[in-house]
Design a protein around this nucleic acid. Sequence first.
DNA 1: ATCTATTATCTCGATGATCGAGACTTTCGA
DNA 2: TCGAAAGTCTCGATCATCGAGATAATAGAT
Lengths: 157, 157
Amino acid sequence: MRARQELALLLRRLTVELDAVGQRFAQRHGLNRTDVRALVAIMDAARRGEALTAGRLGEAVELRSASVTALVDRLERVGHLRRARDAEDRRRVVLEMSESAMAAGAEHFGGLARDLTAAMEGYPPEELAVVRRFLLEMTGVIERHARTDPAADDGGR
Amino acid sequence: MRARQELALLLRRLTVELDAVGQRFAQRHGLNRTDVRALVAIMDAARRGEALTAGRLGEAVELRSASVTALVDRLERVGHLRRARDAEDRRRVVLEMSESAMAAGAEHFGGLARDLTAAMEGYPPEELAVVRRFLLEMTGVIERHARTDPAADDGGR
DNA sequence: ATCTATTATCTCGATGATCGAGACTTTCGA
DNA sequence: TCGAAAGTCTCGATCATCGAGATAATAGAT
């Protein structure tokens, strides 16, 4: 019981520390939290092979369209991003990260990834498999909580 | 190699989802991200048996004193917090969470904790021990990254 | 005991991030 | 071809954050 609660706290602590990593990246590059969240969302999308549009970015970081416009303006102004009209649907604006932003991100977060994977060297495959299963399952539980709309006692807002 | 990278990504994904949980809590209670971070910091401190002062809260959520004053004003105004002068050092303002805020937090985050620990039921103690060791080590690596000030290639700002 | 430096918080004015409402452009379906 | 819907942007308002400086309390030196 104790042990399991400790694990839950450890997950949250890890989250706090990862957040601090992003915070440091933000400071070093004169960005705010949202900007970093946006860049990360765009990089993640790129990793999956999709290019984010302004609208989808807004969903990812939970901002209204007016704020997304301002956000993209900021990032474009400092050269981290380019706007490009989508050829297929010319209403859409697809966002492309600049080489420099990709490089900065890779240096900062890639360095962390390198250290993390290096620290995993010490674990035999069976143990990594256990950890993987655990993380997948916990992520699933958390995801359900994040998305679940109780709405039952939604006293109107 | 692949496997280890996947684990690193899983850690970040878990962070994103946990963040979304906080985001939902914020929405449901008319708070912003910072407010939630602050309440969590205060609850964490309470869990450790310490009462946060305004200054320490500022360190925890990385805000300047002016912003902390505004933050505490907000939270106090909606009844989540009480200011109380420290008896020993009357310059200090110690922050006490209200019963209602504690209850709201417990319901939201406590529910998640319950689901998480429940999901851990399926794991034998040895596996939980592996996970614990893993999380502790990864947290350590991340923490070093978060605090490390490269400053080596600080191209001047 | 008194003075000074330090610590902790707060006030004020300025800046900027976010939002709602609505305009504009493009696409889709009838 | 026309109207509705989708995607983004503009504008004005609101609020979170900050820097500078004020205020109050403590600690240390004499």
